Simulated scan of single mutants.
Amino acid sequence: MKYVDLRSDTVTHPTAAMRKAMYEAEVGDDVYQEDPTISRLEALGAQLTGKEAGLFMTSGTMGNQIAAMVHTKKSDEIICEAESHIYYFEVAGLACLSGAQARPLVGDKGILNADQIRGAIRGIDIHVPDTGLICLENTHNRAGGTCYTKEGLAAIREVATAHHIPIHMDGARIFNAAVAQGVPVDELTCYADSVQFCLSKGLGAPVGSLLVGKREFIEKARRFRKMLGGGLRQAGVLAAAGILALTDMVDRLGEDHDNARILGLGLADLGLKIDVSTIQTNIIMVDVTATGKTAKVLVDEFKTNGIKVNAFGEYKIRMVTHYGVTREDIDYVIGVTARIVKG
């Protein structure tokens, strides 16, 4: 059976051009920094985001955690949003790897503001931890793909600078945020000291993320990457797909956003509860309480009809549009949902 897979944009498959580039990639030993394709990818990622240097990571989680390890010391506190990926989905890595404590703040649809962050920064007191890092997720996964604006980021940067605190941006889907707002990506990344972004989600590469920042930061990150087992050898076969992800796949993200909005509005018309203001990129959060069925039951019903979705709570389902999901697929999902709801 062919499925419409809306579980995540991590399920994308590499394009034919990516597969060819991977086959033909020039490679070397990247631990010795001798892989020319990795070097080209890292330089391209740094250039696009306005940073001095980049470092290939096997995953976004590795990039986030290594950034925290570089920026902080043990017993520091990291300000983040209460349902941010680095806090919610990374296996308590901040506590385990950095020895840092998270300070989760509840954002407005996942987005923190400068006043919130200013109020959470610790003062000088032997009883409390030092605020060592501010982490922002752009776009915010669990909030439904919501975006930080340039204005919001600029205000947070001002607070961070005044208190000498670095900012790390979990930009797993930062290119979605840039396309949605019609701005070059470096107009969003310029407010962060370090940025992690994924190549393997909507951009379609099979594996990998990049961590970018100042050259000195990246060299420290390289050491931690080796410690965590992330030093790769002939990794140019992966980097070749990543280069095409950044050169060929960014502009098409708008198609995913359009499909997400059509899907979200279609499901809302069926009586499902959706905050349509959060459909800014490619993620839709659907409250299915009105169906009288749990998310787990509905996940099974969708799968029986050739649709894969994820439960994100007892009565909440997440759907994610991506490369490989067509407008016809969206119409099919709306039609199946109508039959399930009318049940």
Rank of each mutant, 00 (worst) to 15 (best):
V212L: 02
I283K: 11
R318M: 13
T149C: 03
S209W: 00
L272G: 02
S194P: 02
E77Y: 02
K20N: 07
K201W: 02
M285C: 12
A239G: 06
M69F: 01
I243S: 03
V212Q: 05
I126S: 10
A290G: 05
G236H: 09
M22E: 11
S59T: 14
S75T: 12
N176G: 04
D186M: 03
A100T: 15
A25K: 01
L44E: 05
A172E: 10
L211P: 05
C80T: 15
V31M: 11
K296Q: 11
A180S: 15
A82E: 14
P129C: 04
D256S: 15
F224Q: 10
K73M: 10
R223K: 13
A16S: 13
G202N: 12
R233G: 10
F302N: 09
A178L: 08
T146Q: 08
T139N: 07
G45L: 02
I86A: 13
G229N: 07
F197R: 05
G132N: 05
L228D: 00
E328I: 00
E137M: 08
N113C: 11
G50P: 06
A162V: 04
G254W: 09
H85F: 12
I262N: 03
E83P: 01
L246H: 03
G208F: 04
I38W: 00
L263P: 00
Y148W: 07
S39N: 11
R215I: 10
A67W: 00
M227L: 14
A43V: 10
D35M: 06
G107V: 12
A245C: 09
L232H: 13
D256R: 04
T131K: 07
V106W: 07
V250I: 15
K273Q: 12
A295L: 00
K201A: 06
V276N: 02
Q234P: 01
T58S: 13
N259S: 09
H257Y: 08
V27Q: 13
A178G: 06
A295G: 03
G63L: 00
A114Q: 08
D251M: 09
H164N: 13
I134H: 01
Y32R: 14
V128E: 07
I279W: 01
F224M: 09
N138K: 03
V91E: 15
I283V: 15
T304M: 08
Q280F: 02
K74Y: 04
V106M: 13
H164K: 14
T304A: 14
